[in-house]
Simulated scan of single mutants.
Amino acid sequence: MKLRFWHAAAFSVTALFSSHAADAFELKSDPKIAFIYAATAKDGGWNEAIDNGREILEAELGIDVAVAENIPEEATRLRAAIDLYVKRGFNIIVGTTYGYSEAMNEAAEAYPDVAFFNASGVHNSDNMESFYARTYQAWYLAGIAAADGSEAGKIGMLAGFPVGVVNWDINGFARGAQSVKPDIETYATFTNSWWDPVREGQVAEALLDQGADVIATDLSAASALKAAEERGANSIGYQLDMSPSAPEGIATSVVFHWDKYLVPRIKSVIDGSWQPEEWGWFGGLETGVIGLAPFGPSVTQTTKEKIEAAKAAMIVGDLNPFAGPLKTNADEIKVPEGEILPDEDLWSMDFFVEGITGTMPASK
């Protein structure tokens, strides 16, 4: 079994080493697929982005895909749902949250003939694959749009908790902005919640009060964008295209297209060619899983061309958002010139880059 996970406040990066099977996984019966969500599937954000992928998968395969909603991130509750599905003959089960990681790993060990997938999970084995995307790449592109749309030279971003996959979004956003305006200031604030529309609106207001004229959200609610729209500021959404919530000021949204992962991977399970990635699936812009929504009216053609050029450079490997020289906002050199931050350090990212104003909680 291979393990990968992050920690900031509650998690730590570690790895367990063991052998990985060379043979492809084989289903023992016709495919029966189930998706399990910790909240409602159509939540307007994270879950809905995955569920949109599930709907495309269902159409591509021409079979019904079962859905279980509001199964909390509690081992006993999740395991009960998985056990019931397996008893009913389901042999491909997709989890949708980091909080499912441990229980899904236990289930994968208990049911070696069932294929397991988990979004933002940490475990990988002969019959289980966790998956996530290099979201920082798309946030780098969004940073270009934010910088070009800022007259004040100050932009803000709100996020949930200081875990690696959130910190790299903030840092990627700031680095993208700095690529076109080196002296731009980025304000970052954590809400300490994954879903609190009222709080997110209040945080956005505070960022605007600090002088930011572009507000980006790394969360699922659109309240931050609405706050920006009411103040005449530009904005950037996340998870889904949030333009309906800020039609005048939105620049773009960082969006997921999970069907680009789910359809080919689950088809490979069905056709007998699936071999889970040892350390999980971790694709970038080149896969189409992560990208930008259509641009809003405030984005100029010049900005679009800058973004397209940066995207092309990242895809071919000529641009890495975390290439050196890379300094923290505490003036510590993290990556020397000529080097890049390795993938294993991405998951444990616990710092803000130079140019970000914000407090990173101390690692425990």
Rank of each mutant, 00 (worst) to 15 (best):
R77Q: 15
K2H: 12
S125F: 14
A110W: 12
A142Q: 05
K42V: 06
G62A: 08
A9T: 15
V122L: 09
A222C: 04
W6F: 10
L3S: 10
G164Q: 01
F352C: 00
E305Q: 14
G176W: 07
L78D: 07
N91M: 12
S235Q: 03
D259N: 13
T40K: 03
W6I: 11
E286H: 07
A108P: 01
G296R: 06
V255W: 05
I170H: 00
G45D: 01
W347Q: 02
F161D: 00
L292T: 04
E185G: 01
A330S: 14
Q210L: 15
N70V: 10
N47R: 06
S268M: 09
L78Y: 13
N320M: 09
A177N: 07
A212G: 02
A323I: 10
A246G: 00
H20R: 12
L16W: 15
P264T: 14
D83I: 14
G176H: 07
M242Q: 07
D218K: 04
L57W: 10
E332M: 13
D30F: 10
L240R: 04
I170Q: 01
Q275S: 07
L84N: 11
V166W: 00
A212D: 01
I170Y: 02
A221F: 05
Y140A: 01
F5I: 08
G283L: 13
K226Y: 02
W258F: 08
S150W: 09
Q202E: 15
V166E: 00
L3V: 15
N127E: 10
K226N: 02
D271E: 14
I63R: 00
A177L: 12
S253C: 09
Y187W: 05
A233V: 07
E73G: 12
G283I: 12
E48R: 08
F11K: 13
E69V: 04
E73S: 13
V214Y: 05
E73R: 13
H123W: 15
D83Y: 11
E69N: 01
S130P: 01
A293H: 05
S220V: 04
I144R: 02
N127A: 11
E286K: 06
A188Q: 03
I270S: 08
I50V: 13
S101W: 09
D343E: 10
I215K: 00
V13N: 13
K2S: 12
A39E: 02
N171D: 01
I93M: 09
L61S: 08
E102M: 15
T135E: 14
M157K: 05
V335E: 05
T76R: 15
Q301G: 01
N91V: 14
S120N: 09
W195P: 03
S245A: 03
R134L: 09
A233M: 04
L208M: 11
S150D: 05
E102S: 15
T217N: 02
A188Y: 03
I184V: 09
T357S: 06
Y136D: 06
F35C: 03
S235T: 11
D83G: 06
E354F: 08
L27C: 06
K327T: 15
V180A: 03
E230Y: 04
V316Y: 02
G283P: 06
A110M: 13
A21L: 13
G355Q: 08
A75H: 14
T97L: 09
V353H: 03
E55V: 15
T359H: 05
G232M: 04
A107K: 11
